[in-house]
Design a protein around this nucleic acid. Structure first.
Lengths: 160, 160
DNA sequence: CTAAACGCGGACAATCATTATCCTCGTTAT
DNA sequence: ATAACGAGGATAATGATTGTCCGCGTTTAG
């Protein structure tokens, strides 16, 4: 049981897009290069973010991606949800029904409610952090110089 | 990202062992048959539970498994931990280090603390429910008759 | 004291989700 | 028109999980 690495990659991709000036976009290939991710697969992640309305895409030459919401309005959970989908961490395989020889209609599971609650707790922590709060952390003393270099890279690679 | 089905199976296995009278044991094969799980793989799960001191095993003919703690002292989390191990749900792949071109020593991740906290929240819910509280739920009105039938099956299959 | 029933442990194979590639298409700036 | 980009599907490679097999040590029963 492990979270997909795509979630981490996507968070940093969104952080890159957050460095764009208004109206500008960043081509998908530039992003995946910077993240050292496989370009073809990374496009799929970006499309999931588009479907979830976290980012927007612009087709055609001079196309690319940009944020679709204000950075304060994008939580880590939004990105998690876009990539991992709604499937819950736990789903009963119906063992209890077999054990007690229940009819299919009355099938139940002693764990479902508990695990549901656990998952809510886990997700609620992810909802607390937003892209803008993460961006602030990147701008702290220790990383300030490096982050500025990264912003300059964004300026060079962006279009429009 | 999905929890192993082995966790659910293990919880119900422990619930079965909880129905044993003192000193009695249940052979592994009987358990896996009742849970409709593959016997060879299920033995591995049982051994993980043994390593985690949740259950105890008795070798030799007339051998089998039994609880190693009072049912109030076994939480769902104990079983989760035995099966899934200590590996955390999230682990950074170090992208930020690449992005900012940090030296390896100062490598860091904006998400690690958050995800750590989320995982603590998720686990703390699992620590609330114990084998004895689950056993009570099985004895509620709607399942009482079926649960008694299951207890009789345990009586027949147990040894010593 | 031998055999049979059980748990232990490791090597190995099958299955399944995740990651990655490839090819074709629609869109847009030049 | 053509070149650069995103969209989407079919399909492989990878890796984790699940499942099998075989030989071993221990204990009870004959």
């Amino acid at each position: 049981m492990h979270m997909k690495t795509g979630v981490e990659q996507s968070v940093y991709a969104v952080l890159l897009l957050n460095m764009l000036p208004d109206k500008a976009v960043l081509p998908g290939e530039a992003i995946s290069q910077q993240l050292k991710a496989s370009p073809t697969y990374f496009r799929k992640l970006l499309r999931k973010l588009v479907s979830a309305d976290v980012i927007a895409s612009v087709p055609g030459v001079k196309g690319g991606f940009k944020l679709n919401k204000r950075p304060e309005a994008i939580t880590v959970y939004d990105i998690y949800l876009a990539i991992e989908g709604r499937q819950s961490l736990y789903s009963s395989s119906g063992i209890l029904g077999d054990l007690l020889e229940l009819e299919k209609e009355e099938s139940c599971c002693l764990l479902t409610d508990l695990m549901e609650e656990a998952e809510v707790a886990w997700k609620s922590v992810m909802k607390r952090e937003t892209i803008s709060s993460l961006a602030e952390k990147m701008n702290e003393q220790q990383f300030l110089l490096k982050t500025e270099a990264l912003q300059q890279w964004v300026q060079r690679k962006m279009v429009a």
